[in-house]
Structure formats: C-alpha cells, structure tokens
C-alpha cells in the first residue's frame, strides 16, 4: 500500500468519500487511542473526577509494558470500589482498608506477577493504616496507587484523614478543627521513612502536564517492582467536585491553590542510584 498523506487524501476528496478504516486510521496517523486494557464502558465517576484519568494512565502503562496478563489488581472500598469494572486485568475486591494485606497474599504466592492496589485516602490512611504501614515495612514488592482527594466520596462527603485544616465536609461542617479532629495525615511522607519502601512520589492529574508526569511515575514504580526493589507508592492528589460542591473547573483550581501547597508534588523517596 502506498504511503499517502492527508494532503493526498484531501486531493481525492472531490472524487470519492473517505473510507475511515483505510484512510484515516492508518497506524502512522494515530495520535491518541484509548488504552486497550481500559474497558470501553461508561464510568460511574462524577463528571470531572480525577479517578477516571488515574485509571486511564495506569492502564496505559500496563498496555505499554505489555503486562496485561501478568498483573493482578486489588480494588478498595470507596469511589473506586468498581475499578475492576473498568480495568481489564485480573482483580480482587478487598474489604475496606485491607487492600495491602490482600495484595500481600497475592504477591507472596506469585512473586513473578505484578501486583497493585488502588486505594483512596480513607481506605489507605484511616481504616487501612495498619495494613498499609506493615505491608510497606515488610517491603512487599507491590505498587500502591493512592488517590488523595481529602474526602470520603462514596459515602458523600465526610472528613478524610487527609482533609485540609479548616476544610468543610459533612462531618466537619465548621471546617476541620485540628485541635479536636486531628491533623491531615502525611501518610506518604510517613511511609517514605521505612526501609522497606523503595519509591514514593506525589503527583496530580489536574493538567495535561501533570497527567504525563503521573503516568511516568506509575511506569517507574512498576519497573521497580519488576526489579524487586520493594514497596512503591504513587500518590495522586486529585479533586472531588461533587462533594467539594464545586464545578470541575473550580475543583481543579482548588487542587492547584489549596491541595498542592499542602501536599507538594514530586518525588519523596527514590531508590538508591535511580
């Protein structure tokens, strides 16, 4: 088949209709495709929510590494409880907070496979703190994708361990008072202190550039897992327009102006020599 450009196709337009399969969808013309490992159905996430972007980049990494058949995921309890409806890889749905223990069971029995958990802030840093800290401390060779939006989304807007000081939620209606309701938990920084932890990096998905960086970080973490370096955590600071009572745009501004100054982006711990 001869190499045709858009100019050539355009020249032919007057004579014949475009055949989309043959003409437009040439491999060399592709600038974007949905990851194959992301199941092509409508997601239940609210408009503007960062979860869908996080799902997408994780599955893009799985596609690019060609590991769809070698990876097992663990879904949490929270908004992403249905992650296994969207991710076309073998998955297990864990009890609330127990994802790192479930992942430990899977990884220990199949150390040659890739294993990841996908958890929100309540799941990972409140009810699942013990499971998270001990899996990290044992250096379990797994990836934890940690979605931090500072709120309980699925139960519609209660205070999370990562809720910012002064932030209004349904259970901190006058704003989070750190004197009575505790301080936001810097769980990623805490975990980075443990010797079993290889890699901790914090990202966001509120701008295209940040999406690219977050994706790179996920790829790195899975590469480190392949090398057997130990526990890796990629935190994604993101939004919750519905429960923050904001438009998607306002919520991304809130991420930029309030969340990120509190949870600064970038590497918190990298493996030696990396």
């Amino acid at each position: 088949m001869s190499e045709r450009t858009y100019v050539d196709i355009e020249a032919e337009l007057t004579d014949q209709p475009i055949n989309f399969d043959e003409d437009i969808c040439l491999a060399e013309n592709v600038v974007y495709v949905k990851p194959q490992t992301l199941i092509d159905i409508p997601m239940h996430y609210c408009p503007g929510c960062g979860h869908s972007t996080a799902h997408k980049i994780l599955m893009e990494v799985v596609d690019e590494m060609g590991i769809q058949e070698e990876i097992i995921g663990v879904a949490p309890v929270g908004c992403s409880v249905f992650a296994y409806h969207y991710m076309n890889v073998d998955m297990q749905e864990a009890a609330h907070g127990r994802a790192c223990a479930v992942a430990t069971g899977i990884k220990r029995i199949m150390p040659e496979k890739y294993v990841f958990t996908y958890q929100g802030d309540g799941d990972l840093a409140a009810i699942g703190t013990a499971e998270t800290v001990h899996a990290a401390n044992r250096g379990e060779n797994i990836l934890v994708v940690f979605i931090n939006n500072g709120i309980y989304g699925m139960t519609s807007g209660q205070m999370a361990p990562t809720t910012l000081p002064g932030m209004v939620t349904t259970t901190s209606p006058y704003g989070r008072d750190v004197k009575t309701q505790g301080h936001p938990l810097y769980i990623s920084n805490l975990l980075a202190n443990l010797p079993g932890v290889a890699y901790v990096s914090r990202h966001s998905v509120h701008t295209p550039n940040n999406v690219r960086k977050a994706k790179k970080s996920l790829a790195k973490a899975l590469e480190y897992q392949k090398q057997g370096l130990g526990f890796c955590l990629v935190e994604i600071v993101t939004n919750c327009p519905s429960n923050w009572k904001m438009t998607p745009k306002q919520s991304n501004q809130f991420v930029e102006e309030k969340m990120i100054p509190f949870y600064p982006l970038g590497d918190i711990k990298v493996p030696e020599g990396k």
Partner: peptide
C-alpha cells in the same frame, strides 16, 4: 510453602483472601 507472620488477625485473614483468590491451598 509461604509462611508469614501478619501484623494482626485482620491482616492475616485478608492475606488468606488474596492467596485463596489466586486459587491456592491456604
């Protein structure tokens, strides 16, 4: 055989869930 001392019985039974889900005798 894998033998692991968990941090709690809560974690132990969830490790069982994971490995049992992988079709193993646990």
């Amino acid at each position: 055989m894998v033998v692991l001392q968990a941090e709690s019985e809560v974690a132990a039974i969830n490790m069982i869930y994971g490995a049992a889900g992988a079709g193993r005798r646990v």
